[in-house]
Amino acid sequence: MDLRQLETLVAVAETRSFAGAARIVNLTASAVSQQIQALEAEVGVSLFDRRTRPPRLNAQGEEMVRAARQMVQTMTETRRTITGGRTSGVLNFGAIRTVSLWLAPLAFAAMRAQFPALSFDLRVGVSEALMADVSAGRLDAAVVAEHVGVPAGLIWTPVVTEPLLLVAPPGAEGQDARALLAEYPFIRYETDVPLSRQIETELSRIGVRRREIAVSNTMPSIVGCVQAGLGVAVVPKLATLNLPTGSLQILPFGQEPITRRIGLVQREVSARSKVLGAMRDTLAATAGEYGLV
């Protein structure tokens, strides 16, 4: 067996399809199938139940995936160590959307002084998918939200705590967030992520009957809808950074201050530990400049 086969097996396990794995490892679906068949021939057992569509991992396949993840991680870290990639080369970094707008780019720029030989490859996604990429070795680390399960072999370190805010158009009139929610149409964040669930839980708790006018799966479009005067929305503070003065009304959200924590997830053993420690500190310091804890 070779490393490419093991990486392909891990991708199939994570996407639960050969077609999904093909997109991750940059192969055709038929090439993925051929690699899996070659791996099965090498180990001498079938790893999938092909009576189902798509084929599902059997017990032997699940055990093989666990071993494959460890071997891929070990080889990835070894390659970086012996090639001096710990403080140079490309840092494959993931971030949730709100972090990717300003915080991550500003941190990258600040890191250049300390690590001039380092370049950055930023992948934007949802927390669960980013953690899977870190676990599989496709990313060195990622900034993800709290309230998601951290797989074995990974560690999550908090970086920033930010408040959730109610944003309204500049001309909206209302004494507080509750009054604005009752008066104006609501723009909902629809993505199935911890932030969306946190917003919905608090809206249910305060018991305001809201009139939904639009849904969107990105924070920039949510903010854009509010700026255009379509209605009001609940967003994290990171989504409001660097907006033109006066383009939004911004109020606290929730009966008590509602916050979310975001943190850096990385593998427990990483040849990038020095760089990632500096990245964590830089992210926190950069957030602090905008009044975030």
Rank of each mutant, 00 (worst) to 15 (best):
W156Y: 07
W156N: 01
W156G: 00
T157Q: 14
T157R: 13
T157I: 12
T157S: 12
P158W: 09
V159D: 05
V159P: 05
V159Q: 07
V159L: 15
V159E: 07
V160G: 02
V160M: 07
V160S: 03
T161L: 14
E162Q: 10
E162H: 02
E162Y: 06
P163D: 08
L164E: 01
L165V: 06
L165R: 07
L165T: 01
L165D: 00
L166K: 02
L166Q: 02
L166C: 01
V167K: 03
A168Q: 04
P169Q: 05
P169K: 11
P170A: 05
P170T: 04
G171E: 15
A172D: 01
E173T: 13
G174V: 03
G174M: 04
Q175Y: 13
Q175T: 10
D176F: 07
D176A: 08
A177T: 02
A177G: 02
A177D: 09
A177S: 08
R178D: 07
L180G: 00
A182T: 08
E183C: 09
Y184D: 00
Y184A: 02
P185C: 06
P185F: 09
F186C: 01
I187L: 05
R188I: 13
R188M: 10
Y189W: 09
E190I: 14
E190Q: 15
E190L: 15
T191L: 15
D192F: 08
V193R: 08
V193K: 08
S196P: 03
S196W: 03
R197L: 12
R197Q: 12
R197C: 05
Q198I: 12
I199H: 03
E200R: 15
T201L: 14
E202G: 02
L203E: 04
I206G: 00
G207C: 07
V208Q: 04
V208N: 01
R209C: 08
R209Q: 11
R210K: 11
R210Q: 06
E212P: 08
I213L: 10
I213Y: 05
I213A: 11
